[in-house]
Design a protein around this nucleic acid. Sequence first.
DNA 1: ATGAAAGCGCTAACAG
DNA 2: CTGTTAGCGCTTTCAT
Lengths: 330, 330
Amino acid sequence: MVIRGVPGPSAASRQNVLRAAADLDFRPDPTARTLRRQRSGLLGVLFTAGEPFHAELLEALYPAAEQCGYEVVLSAVLATRTENRAVESLVTSRCEGLILLGPQLDSADLAALAAKLPVTVVGRSAPDAGVDSIHTADAMGSAAAVDLLVSLGHERIAHVDGGRRPGSAERRRGYRTAMRRRGLQSQVRVIPGDHDEEAGVRAAHTLLAEPGRHTAVLAGNDRCAVGLLDTLRRAGVQVPTDVSIVGYDDSRLARLPYIDLTSVQQDAPAMARLAVDTIGTRLRGDSTGAGSDDTGSAGGDVREILLDPRLIVRGTTAPAPSPRHRPAAG
Amino acid sequence: MVIRGVPGPSAASRQNVLRAAADLDFRPDPTARTLRRQRSGLLGVLFTAGEPFHAELLEALYPAAEQCGYEVVLSAVLATRTENRAVESLVTSRCEGLILLGPQLDSADLAALAAKLPVTVVGRSAPDAGVDSIHTADAMGSAAAVDLLVSLGHERIAHVDGGRRPGSAERRRGYRTAMRRRGLQSQVRVIPGDHDEEAGVRAAHTLLAEPGRHTAVLAGNDRCAVGLLDTLRRAGVQVPTDVSIVGYDDSRLARLPYIDLTSVQQDAPAMARLAVDTIGTRLRGDSTGAGSDDTGSAGGDVREILLDPRLIVRGTTAPAPSPRHRPAAG
DNA sequence: ATGAAAGCGCTAACAG
DNA sequence: CTGTTAGCGCTTTCAT
């Protein structure tokens, strides 16, 4: 009690105990404490190693978890370590709740997981899995990018998508919708891609094979945008003079002075904080969906938190190089 | 016993138990096990989030640890989370041994840590700390890079160093030694840098301000090399025609088709395996009773394992430009 | 205000 | 081979 600071012991006993503890270099064993308390105080976080945006999220996750009295347990997704495996290790560690950063698990897996313990998905929606999710309004983000480009006079705007990656479907949808709204539906062009540099390189080659076709490209994320950017430049295309490029995530990459990429920013600190809060709420209230298990269809108490994106305009976007310059007409 | 796979129970009982366990989704509680066994079976790994080379190391660390019967516990170093803090959390988790990826802790901190439990440092030497270390013969790596460049006719070879980053001192030394050995000591030029893209950008500007000076640059690592590469190219310098560039780490970055960077490769899988082995050895050989009180360091001399680097030649190195056509920046 | 005792889930040692 | 038992270090409850 003394060591834990619980009121009860007298000041005299307190002194005594404290001194003895110091003498013996006594440290309470967290293992025994966990065993007895029947709660680990552990918050499992699944992330992808080497992913810049995940590093940003982790940055905010640690203080948020600490503030709620949880300890963070990391599990890495790697080329040779699947998400299922990473999740498994978190469950085995007796985490009380799980935060999954940009997972690609399907709804069934997510639902099965959420039946065991509170799960919050970050960076994508999880429509039918019945789990809480925190993500950016990605459709709004790509729409904002399209709007910027249109206001700069661009019409032939392509989108290199992120395939099945988290958020890709909505970014694609936002692009399509915005193009349509601007009367540019005939110009819609979605190039299949991915969330890495290689995809950007491939997309660049596709674009280069269509000379004079596009004056702007919205990439699926920053890494893709960088591959695109470098490949186009090496092929002699001037960015942003000939082609404007917009990325997504506003990662460290985008902010590098020599990249200086216009990009859609996600509020990583807020996402992290909300993710921890969401788990905390579940843990305090009815913990799992064990009892009244509505698989999310009825909108029950499954939370989907949407954050607004923010377009950060930098040096890779400029007025369209079209024959007749079109003033910013909105 | 069945669940743990210990010989003893009959096949019949085994069947029974296994089925019941599956029915109940039973999982042995690692907490109780740890408490009773008086050992956690945990191997702590400190890494830097977002660092490509660390991701590569982690990749190999997981299977290696599993093979030795250890579970990996990750602790991330981040902008707002110091190494000391990350290490602290690993110790609190009752890890039996620690693997530190490219730490920058000083000798005193390392020594204090190693007095508590077995510690292996990966990616740099730890001369006076009395801890085991696994790292590449970095001096040899940069020497090989210099040798390649010299054999291509380069003489004015600069080195952008990595300041106090892991391995930097030796890479710098290797560069200096190799230059001297080739009779180029008068050409030695070390530009202070770091292990990130920004440092490459700064170094590029330094080089650009010295027209006609250098025809080749050895960067402190791949990220630095990429910043350098892009900045020089954007300034109109042809790589490798005007200037050759060599990186260090052979990370995913270097292998990207549009970067195609000549780089010094470190054998990450071997480093990971050896790191786990080293910890395992210490843990087995240590019984605390050697008359001394140095817990983790019992079990013999400090081991420093050196691995040979390998130069991977790609597209950023080429014969030196003839003196007549001295490039603006080189 | 303090002490005593029970028990968290597991493992190891021992008895049938 | 199988069943029983003690106890890891802590927290909590109940008696003083």
